[in-house]
Amino acid sequence: MSKRAKMEPMIKTYDIPSAEERTSNTTDFFVDDINNINSVRLLEIVKTDGSDDACTASVIRTNNGNIAITAAHCIFDYYLQTWNTNLYFFPGYNNNVPGRVGKVYAYKSFIWGDFRQDVTRFDYGFIKFYYPEGRKLQDDTGAFDYDLVIPQGNVPTTVFGYPHDNSGGFVNCPKDGQHLCLWQGDSFDFPSTLPNYEWYRGINVDVGYGSSGGPWLRNYDPNTNAGNVMGISHGILYEPYPDTSTASWAWHQDDFANLLQYAENSQ
């Protein structure tokens, strides 16, 4: 099946927290030390059985200003075929200490319906957050730009994530799920001898559990922590893909733009 087949978006609206809850964990002043690195942080997940899980998400620059990108499998449980119950974002989180923005509640999530048929396809989605009225989350955290057209060939890439297992290929990082880890190297096209090779890009490292949804940045500038999201961590693909390479779904520009527009326009 072509990835250009007609698709329908899926939307999840979360239980509305009280106004007191929404503001009690969020700063009541404008953050004066905006740093784009705060836009990629821990995403806490509550599953349908009440258990906790974690992924990584990052704020992207939009007109709405309150939208992040992560993996679809962090939003929707493919194996249970159910939405996760709640999502909480912690901009600036490090070593069990929330950043100055605090805990931000998810309002709605958006994925492509085709993800339900195959966990390895269309594995990205958007989260729209509650934030104090008249404010934009990206103004307090910074935000990444994004590529609509995914580059081909070998591309210098910076990958972030919150791995919480020792298999994570990040170095010089505790990999305890509490610290933001960084990997830098080339992302690449998979060989044309592999099935559906054009659907994915890869990096030669296993980013580990907890890093799912973490951004792959092109043109990352460590001085400003700016860059363009060109993918997000999916995980290891099934054989015959190598079990040492993390993959990202190579979205088509129309698919990405249409889903993001749907998220921005949703009330």
Rank of each mutant, 00 (worst) to 15 (best):
D28V: 10
S212L: 05
N196H: 14
W83S: 03
P17W: 06
G208F: 00
S192R: 05
K6G: 00
M1N: 09
L80W: 03
T85M: 06
L87A: 10
I75K: 02
D49K: 10
D254K: 14
P215S: 09
N94W: 10
V101P: 02
P174N: 02
N95S: 15
F122I: 01
S245Q: 13
G208W: 00
P9D: 05
M10P: 09
A71E: 06
G227T: 11
L194S: 11
T85G: 00
I127N: 03
E198K: 15
G113F: 00
V59K: 04
F90A: 06
E21G: 00
W183M: 04
A257P: 04
S212Q: 09
R135C: 09
N96M: 10
K108T: 14
T246Q: 04
T244R: 06
R201L: 09
T62Y: 05
D114R: 07
K47L: 11
E264C: 09
C74R: 01
G235K: 11
Y107M: 13
I127F: 06
R218S: 09
E44T: 14
D254C: 02
F90Q: 05
D118V: 01
S58V: 07
A106S: 14
V31I: 15
Y262A: 11
T224A: 13
K12E: 13
N154F: 12
E20P: 02
Y105R: 07
A257Y: 11
Q267C: 08
A106F: 09
C181M: 05
I111L: 04
R201D: 06
N166T: 08
D140H: 14
S192G: 05
D33L: 07
G169I: 03
D49N: 15
I111Q: 02
F30E: 14
P132H: 03
N219S: 14
F144G: 08
N172F: 08
D53F: 08
T193H: 07
N223C: 05
S167H: 06
H252R: 13
S2Q: 03
G235M: 12
Y197V: 03
Y209S: 15
W249S: 04
H252P: 01
G214P: 08
D33T: 15
L259Y: 09
E21C: 10
S58N: 12
Q253Y: 13
S109P: 07
V207Y: 00
R22W: 01
I60Y: 03
T141M: 11
N225S: 13
I67T: 02
Q184K: 13
A247M: 04
P151Q: 02
V101M: 12
E239C: 02
W249T: 05
N95Y: 07
D243R: 14
Y79P: 02
A71P: 09
L43I: 06
A72S: 15
D49Y: 14
R4K: 15
V205A: 14
Y88A: 07
Y209P: 02
Y131A: 09
K47C: 03
C55E: 01
A57M: 14
F129R: 03
Q184W: 00
W199F: 14
A71D: 10
G185C: 02
S245M: 11
